[in-house]
């Protein structure tokens, strides 16, 4: 980064640090904070979408849809996250490749499963073998996003389902008495009031999601935990910047990051709660 960094062994400590903290590897560590935030910001709306889908399916008067909603929420909630992440994503990844294989290589005769091996034709590889590494990383990120959305969507569905039930039934009856159609009553009466009951649960879910981001590492996405571990490990003279075991320091940085993130989220949810409670005499908004 700086000109004097060419021979780190001759530097005094201030310059050494300025060089060390600006190596490419360190910059990858800084960028991985962005990866984690991007994952959080990208999954949150999808989780809400899945949650709404699940909750509305469970409330549906159409039996198969109701069973589907119930099945989705109970299944995901009952299976340990980690199994779901590992299994569902490998299945999704191989499923996409399998479908591509059938469509793109119709004259391929060898079996896809050969013993332990999963073999598809070169054109069906997703992403293709010759794609640059960043494409592989974006694809991995996308799979992770799907995984988080499916799992946390089920939790959101349950929270939202509960919140829909919690809105006093008298409110809907009154709406009907005023001549509102079901649809209108949903948008004008049920939905705005539902948020008051849903927010505490959703904010909990958000916190859990924040704390679950280190699982990204298990999915092959190089997140902050991966880099902290990698950079913090002791480095021998093979490296340009040899040092001892600095994992404690790196993990303290992560601790600070997560604390700040949860603190900011806390504040955000407080404001949101005040906003959705406006005009309610019962819960958060007493005015």
């Amino acid at each position: 980064m700086f000109e004097y960094c060419t021979d780190p062994s001759s530097l005094d400590s201030l310059q050494w640090w300025s060089c060390y903290l600006t190596t490419n590897k360190q910059i990858m560590f800084y960028q991985s904070f962005g990866t984690v935030l991007a994952l959080l910001l990208a999954t949150a709306p999808v989780i809400l979408l899945f949650g709404f889908g699940g909750a509305l399916a469970r409330r549906s008067r159409f039996l198969p849809l109701r069973l589907f909603g119930l099945g989705y929420t109970s299944m995901v909630r009952g299976i340990p996250d980690i199994i779901f992440f590992m299994f569902a994503l490998i299945a999704l990844d191989q499923g996409i490749e399998y479908v591509r294989h059938i469509v793109l290589c119709p004259d391929w005769t060898e079996p896809v499963r050969q013993g332990n091996d999963f073999v598809v034709c070169a054109a069906a590889k997703m992403p293709p073998n010759n794609a640059p590494q960043w494409v592989h990383e974006v694809y991995g990120f996308f799979l992770a996003l799907v995984g988080y959305s499916v799992v946390y969507g089920a939790f959101a569905a349950n929270t939202l389902f509960g919140a829909f039930q919690a809105v006093p039934h008298a409110q809907l009856e009154t709406a009907a008495a005023f001549g509102m159609s079901k649809r209108k009553a949903f948008w004008r009466i049920l939905l705005p009031q539902m948020w008051v009951y849903a927010l505490p649960g959703l904010s909990n879910l958000w916190m859990i999601l924040v704390k679950a981001t280190p699982l990204l590492f298990l999915l092959g996405v190089k997140d902050i935990v991966y880099w902290a571990n990698e950079l913090g490990g002791a480095k021998t003279a093979r490296f340009t910047y040899p040092h001892g075991d600095w994992r404690l320091g790196y993990f303290l940085v992560l601790l600070a990051f997560y604390l700040i993130l949860t603190w900011v989220s806390e504040r955000g949810f407080e404001r949101l709660n005040r906003y959705v409670s406006r005009g309610h005499a019962s819960r958060g908004g007493s005015t």
């Binding site: 190596t23 073998n129 010759n130 990698e230």
Partner: peptide
Amino acid sequence: FAVNGASAKTLRMGTEGKYPPFNFVNDNG
């Protein structure tokens, strides 16, 4: 379903990256 002009000649080499001097991730990443 995008067809990629995949030449079969590209190999992805997997390694651990944590076992110097056999393999490691250097300061350039």
